[in-house]
Structures are given as C-alpha cells and as structure tokens.
Simulated assay, not measured.
Amino acid sequence: MISEDKYLKRVLLTSDVYAACLQHALTTEKEEVMGLLIGEVDEKKCISQISACVILHRSDKQPDRVEISPEQLCTASGYADELAHKLDKPMRVVGWYHSHPHITVWPSHVDVRTQVMYQMMDPLFVGIIFSVYQSDTGSTGNHVQVTCFQAYKAGSEYQRREIELVIENISIQRYNLESIASLPRILSQEEVQRHGGEGDDNIEDGLTWLHNDAFQTLALVHIVSKVAKPLCEDLDARLKSVNLRITELEKIKKKLLTEH
C-alpha cells in the first residue's frame, strides 16, 4: 500500500544528467529507451537530488514499453555504492527514466503500474519521462517535453501525481561524461544481439545470413553517423570551450598578481 503522506515534493536534476538522459532518448524514434537514476533523498523534506544515471542495455526493443530486470537494478545499486564511496556522500538508486517517442509525455497505465511496483519498495522512488520527436501543428521541429511523476491510489485505481522538477545548471561531471560516452557502445551491443550476433554463423541459409548481416551493418553505420560522430563533435566543442575559458582565467590571474 502506497502511503498518501509519503511522496516527493520536489526533484532536483543536475543539467549533465538531464543532457545524458535526453541524448539517450533522442537515439531512436522507433522504440522506448530507459535507464536508472542515482542520487540522494532528504527523507524529512521529501526532496530528491539526482546527480547520476545508468543507461541500460535493452534485451528486447519495444515501441511502447520498457522493462528493467532485477539484475540491472542490482548492477545500478552497486554503481551507486561506488559513487557513494568516491564522492563521500550517500548515494542510491532513486528513480527511473524512459522515453516516449512520438507520443504524449504523460505516463501510460503500464508506466503507472511499474511506478507502483517501485514505490512498494521505496515510497520516494520517482519516474521521469522524456517525450521526443513530437511536432506541434504546422511545425517541423522536434518538440521535447519532460515530466516527473509518482503514483497514488485513488479509489480502486492508481493515478499519476506530477512532481515539481527543477534542473540545476552545473558543469558536467566525469562519471556522467563516461555514461554519455558509453552510449554508442551500448547501442551497438543491442544491435548485435538483435540481429543474432555470433549465432548468425550457424544459419544454413546463406541469403538469410546475408540479409541479417546487411541490416546489422546498416544499424551500426546509423549509430556511428547519427550518435557517435555528433557526440564526438559536441564533446570536442566542449573541450575547446573549456580550454578557452582556462586560458582567459589564467590571463586574469596573471593580471591580478601583477597588480598586487
């Protein structure tokens, strides 16, 4: 039973985690993607601070649902423990995120049921949805929407409750940069598994093998051209910007030292 007086009042999401989740959501407009959110929760104020994420490998691609296995949840918990030790502060899995390509940002009844399951284990667990590849009437642009929610029981059914979401602008952290950089590798692993991987070598029908291999190659080329290459260009631009800023600060420091 989900307690009515035990729910989140606010979620603080760092800008680098927001960028990582959105980048993941934009990698495909055909299926939903998902991941887990890591941070700390103020139990008294019921405020969640999300500062890291885990991009999950999908064993089964579906256009309208995602599933997080107990093994993935366990792995994410281990990663949270590592971050807690490294950052010297309490960290745990505090939520999950997934995408809604071409559909409304609001959670479906399946999403609400999934959220109920998580809240049974942790009343302050939260869900975030990124709605992508939506265009307003008469517009050709990609319209992105984000919602943060929990579930509560209304009569005999469960409903969604919107939670206030605040994006905190911070510089990108190394561990979140590593998560973003791992995205092409995870997507490539999904494609290899989807098209049979090493098992294709055992297919007797040469045309079937050639067909599967061709589609896998096309998918991998798409990942390189549409995900990996733009990602590298973006990170390179960030690096140049940071180096320029360092140079400017060194000049200011030198000037101040000279004046004093």
Rank of each mutant, 00 (worst) to 15 (best):
M1I: 13
S3V: 13
Y7F: 14
L8E: 00
K9P: 07
R10L: 15
R10V: 14
V11D: 04
T14H: 06
T14V: 12
S15I: 08
V17E: 01
V17A: 06
A20S: 09
T27D: 00
V33T: 08
G35D: 02
G35E: 02
L37T: 07
I38R: 01
E40L: 07
D42K: 10
K44L: 10
K45P: 04
K45Y: 11
I47E: 10
S48R: 02
Q49S: 15
A52H: 13
A52P: 03
C53N: 08
R58K: 10
R58P: 05
D60R: 13
K61V: 05
K61C: 06
Q62P: 01
S69V: 06
E71R: 12
T75V: 13
Y79L: 14
D81I: 09
E82V: 11
E82C: 15
L83C: 03
L83H: 10
A84W: 03
H85M: 05
K86L: 11
P90C: 03
R92V: 08
V93H: 06
S99Y: 14
H100N: 08
P101S: 03
T104D: 15
P107S: 02
P107Y: 00
H109C: 13
V112G: 01
V112F: 01
M117V: 15
D122P: 04
P123Y: 11
L124N: 11
F125D: 08
V126W: 01
I128Y: 00
I128W: 00
I128K: 00
F130C: 01
T140A: 11
T140H: 04
T140V: 08
T140G: 04
N142A: 04
H143L: 09
H143G: 05
V144I: 12
Q145C: 05
V146I: 14
T147Q: 03
K153D: 04
I163N: 03
I163H: 01
I163V: 11
I163M: 02
V166G: 08
E168P: 01
N169L: 10
N169H: 14
S171C: 06
Q173G: 07
N176R: 00
I180T: 06
S182L: 13
R185M: 10
L187Q: 05
L187T: 02
Q189D: 15
Q189S: 15
E190L: 09
E190W: 05
Q193T: 14
Q193F: 04
R194F: 11
G197K: 03
D201K: 11
N202D: 08
I203E: 01
E204D: 10
E204T: 10
D205L: 09
D205V: 07
G206Q: 10
N212T: 08
T217F: 12
A219R: 09
L220G: 02
V221S: 10
V221T: 12
V224N: 09
S225A: 12
V227M: 01
V227K: 02
V227G: 05
A228Q: 06
L231D: 02
E233D: 07
D236K: 07
V242T: 12
V242H: 13
V242A: 14
V242K: 13
R245H: 12
I246R: 14
L249D: 11
I252R: 15
L257N: 15
L257T: 09
T258G: 14
H260W: 05
